[in-house]
């Protein structure tokens, strides 16, 4: 099959970018979207041009490194899918596909389709952990955790940190990301001791990084590859007030 890719090209953060069109031939339906870009890059190399910079690593939907805004949707046309798991069978022969980097002030463009998501790491560094030194843990079964609690924590913990939530949010809000980590840790008994401090510090960092407000459009939970529920944000809001008023 044949597709026209309309791809955002930008040398570096300071530069102005622009779309450039590439007609790509010899594609097959079972190629993944990233393999199509690989293929395009090989043709660019042979023409002596600089390749399109885009990110990927595991290519099985778990590392969270890939992330492209494809035809108006974060990670492409399907719900709950990463870019690496998008295949060309989701497009029609002859389609034009618009390919853009994640857009948010907190995610500056590094080059072409690569953005800098280190703001996420800095949020995690403000309490997205349980302070447990290696070698200090009690016997694992000494802390009983009900299945429902463990499942709920796991639902939130599944976040892969891809940034689709921020990318799709009209406000560039990181509320889903931040709330997922807060709820993962604050739900578990091990995380309870630092619960209030964690909420205060992580949300403060979220504000500091320049993310927008959450207005509950719900776009994030649809684009989230792990389908993390927006109810997490509501729960974080409750935890925030608890931390502010009662702690």
């Amino acid at each position: 099959m044949q597709l026209t890719f309309r791809i955002w090209r930008q040398e570096q953060f300071q530069d102005k970018g622009a779309f450039k069109e590439y007609l790509v031939d010899h594609l097959t339906e079972d190629m993944s979207f990233l393999e199509a870009l690989d293929h395009l890059n090989e043709t660019l190399v042979l023409k002596g041009e600089r390749v399109i910079a885009f990110e990927y690593d595991c290519r099985e939907g778990i590392c969270g490194q890939c992330g492209i805004f494809i035809n108006g949707r974060a990670h492409g046309p399907h719900d709950h899918v990463t870019t690496c798991q998008l295949h060309l069978r989701s497009f029609q022969d002859g389609d034009t596909v618009t390919v853009e980097p994640w857009r948010a002030k907190a995610f500056p463009v590094v080059q072409d389709l690569i953005v800098d998501r280190s703001a996420f790491d800095r949020i995690i560094a403000q309490g997205g952990y349980i302070s447990a030194k290696t070698g200090t843990a009690p016997e694992a079964n000494a802390i009983l955790i009900g299945k429902e609690t463990a499942d709920k924590a796991m639902d939130a913990a599944a976040c892969i940190g891809c940034g689709a939530c921020v990318a799709t949010c009209k406000n560039g809000s990181a509320a889903l990301f931040t709330s997922a980590k807060i709820n993962h840790l604050n739900t578990l008994p091990q995380g309870k001791l630092e619960a209030d401090q964690r909420v205060r510090d992580m949300t403060a960092q979220m504000e500091e990084e320049g993310f927008g407000h959450c207005s509950f459009t719900g776009a994030c939970e649809v684009e989230c590859p792990e389908g993390i529920s927006i109810a997490n944000i509501a729960e974080m809001n409750a935890r925030y007030w608890k931390a502010r008023l009662f702690a």
Binding site: F19, F69, N71, G72, T98, E100, R103, A104, K105, A106, C169, K170, N171, G172, S173, G210, F211, G212, H213, S215
Partner: peptide
């Protein structure tokens, strides 16, 4: 603030 957080809009 939301406008500032999203300075560039998507083409599509």
């Amino acid at each position: 603030r939301n406008r500032k957080a999203k300075p560039v809009k998507y083409a599509v």
